[in-house]
Design a protein around this nucleic acid. Structure first.
Length: 507
RNA sequence: GCCCCCAUCGUCUAGUGGCCUAGGACACCGCCCUUUCAAGGCGGCGGCGGGGAUUCGAAUUCCCCUGGGGGCACCA
């Protein structure tokens, strides 16, 4: 059914957001599917701004959306910011250029559309009556009977009017690349407005005109548009234009099965950006929501997705957004970063932590946390072991220091402090070397402890608690190297005094 | 209410009539590694919503039910 649908080359698809909010993950996935489809077939990916709703659209949202799409790595070939042969790419500008009105005029001339003078009140009443009769609300045709002469004179008199599309009889079938054929019975849709009383085109009209003018070959969008497609097909027919191929993908649900919304937590691309999710992880996750590659692999680069993407491999059923799986993928991508790339990625999330560290110390700390991060924004908390030392008196774990063996561990460690460099003595390039030095120091210390019958476990725990006031955190070699000689000495000495004072009953 | 879509482990999915006593991934549980927490390795738990029909044979085809979702604007 759908598999043998021809894909004319070159293919042209578009992502057409409305700048009335930020980029939602659902829209991001729509953009992604369009992008992958276009790149897979070496076609064009067009970005169009649907801002005919002047009341809700803002330039800020438009910029924010473009920004997020770019951040996700979905580069477009044509768009409002970069032009193209089919512009303008903003509906407000296209409207100002009279593009829609000329098409509407044609429909009016051919009696395929008519002026409607009904008031909002009457329309509302009509709707209620339909509902009361258990019918699907639809316009009753009233103004369709007005003669063009009468319409002209009422228009001339300044009476406000919309332009309605005259819906013809007959079933409407939508051939969908994902769903196959779905038919809408005749009569379920009434004459709909194509031009509002303020002269702006309505969605179902503007989309068709734009897709025709921009020579869009495939429309890939959310399933919430399926019923709109029936209306749009009618407009194509009235304009005597061949419609593009359609593919309606399923919607993303929240964990409770309901529509994904703010109450489910982060839902916009920007939210995830702020939390420190990598674009590669997000598009990878979003692609896997509904789509699966023949290889069944889970971690896929953009290039691999482009290579394998096929619209027919997109599942039909709705998908629940699973943050845990996104977290897993994000962790994979974070761990895949080399030291420099990780440094660049984590930098914006460091906050105050950055000021406390020398370049070398920071590099060590970064290596320490890279394997355990789920999202970059978790860095500050993980870095706490280095930068926010918890006073021993406040840490319940510190009782473990009050022990002859522990006191001895601290003494021995202090004697080996020279193995560590001073904070100023190493830079980012020397970080790995410094960690190795700390590792060596620890193994020597361990050997000595063994000789003195102090269990290694006690040694490691003692040092960890002495250095951080906590029982868990980064591995000790990272801690020692990251803190560097001065801080290590200071904390060790404090701990020794703490232990000594309590051991001898002075506190 | 009316119209449309959807239905495989808790979640995302593979599966297009026999290769399925249904495969993978996340999550969960256990074990290993180990100085902690992670990471990593190994293993385990767990599913075709229900009922009919077609067929030698149905997760796969058809019908009904149930459940979920979407649409029904001078929003997109």
């Amino acid at each position: 059914m759908t598999s043998e649908h021809p894909f004319p080359s070159p293919v042209r698809v578009r992502f057409a957001p409305s700048p009335t909010g930020t980029l939602h993950v659902g829209s991001a996935r729509t953009a992604l599917y369009n992008y992958l489809f276009a790149r897979h077939l070496q076609g064009s990916f067009v970005l169009r701004i649907e801002d005919t709703d002047a009341a809700r659209s803002t330039p800020e949202f438009e910029r924010s959306i473009l920004d997020d799409v770019a951040w996700l790595g979905l580069d477009w070939d044509e768009g409002p910011d970069r032009g193209g042969d089919f512009g303008p790419y903003r509906q407000s500008e296209r409207s100002a250029a009279g593009l829609y009105l000329s098409y509407a005029g044609r429909l009016l001339d051919e009696n395929k559309a008519y002026h409607c003078f009904c008031s909002q009140e009457r329309l509302e009443k009509l709707k209620q009556e339909c509902l009361a009769r258990n019918e699907m609300p639809k316009y009753d045709h009233r103004c369709g009977a007005i003669s063009s002469d009468e319409a002209e004179s009422r228009l001339a008199a300044g009476e406000p009017a919309t332009i309605r599309f005259r819906v013809s009889d007959g079933d409407i079938a939508v051939d969908d690349l994902i769903h196959g054929r779905t038919a809408f019975p005749a009569g379920v849709i009434g004459d709909f407005i194509i031009v509002r009383s303020d002269g702006a085109p309505s969605y179902n009209f503007a989309v068709v005109v734009d897709d025709i003018d921009m020579e869009i070959t495939h429309v890939i969008r959310g399933e919430d548009h399926l019923t709109n497609t029936a209306r749009q097909l009618l407009v194509y027919a009235a304009l005597a234009k061949e419609p593009p191929a359609f593919a309606h993908h399923s919607l993303i649900m929240g964990p409770d099965g309901g529509k994904l919304s703010k109450r489910h937590g982060a839902t916009s691309a920007g939210d995830f950006r702020q939390l420190g999710y990598l674009p590669a992880a997000i598009i990878n996750y979003l692609a896997l929501l509904s789509w699966s590659p023949p290889s069944q692999r889970e971690q896929l680069s953009k290039a691999e997705m482009i290579k394998d993407f096929e619209i027919r491999r997109v599942a039909r059923s709705p998908a629940i957004f699973d943050l845990q799986k996104l977290n897993w993928l994000n962790g994979l991508y974070i761990r895949d970063l080399d030291h420099e790339a990780f440094h660049r990625a984590i930098e914006p999330f460091l906050g105050a932590a950055r000021e406390f560290a020398s370049e070398g110390q920071l590099a060590v700390a970064e290596q320490a946390i890279q394997t355990s991060l789920v999202a970059l924004a978790g860095a500050r908390e993980q870095l706490a072991a280095f930068f926010d030392q918890r006073p021993l008196a406040e840490a319940k774990e510190s009782v473990e220091l009050v022990d002859a063996g522990s006191e001895r561990v601290l003494e021995l460690a202090l004697l080996r402090i020279a193995a560590l460099n001073s904070a100023a003595e190493f830079n980012a390039a020397g970080a790995t070397e410094e960690i190795e030095a700390a590792r060596l120091m620890l193994s020597e210390l361990k050997r000595q402890c063994r000789q003195e019958k102090i269990p290694p476990k006690q040694m490691f725990r003692t040092l960890r608690i002495a250095l951080t006031g906590r029982a868990s955190g980064p591995e000790l070699p990272f801690l020692l190297a990251g803190l560097a000689r001065e801080a290590v000495r200071q904390r060790l000495e404090e701990a020794r005094e703490f232990a000594a004072a309590r051991l001898r009953g002075k506190v």
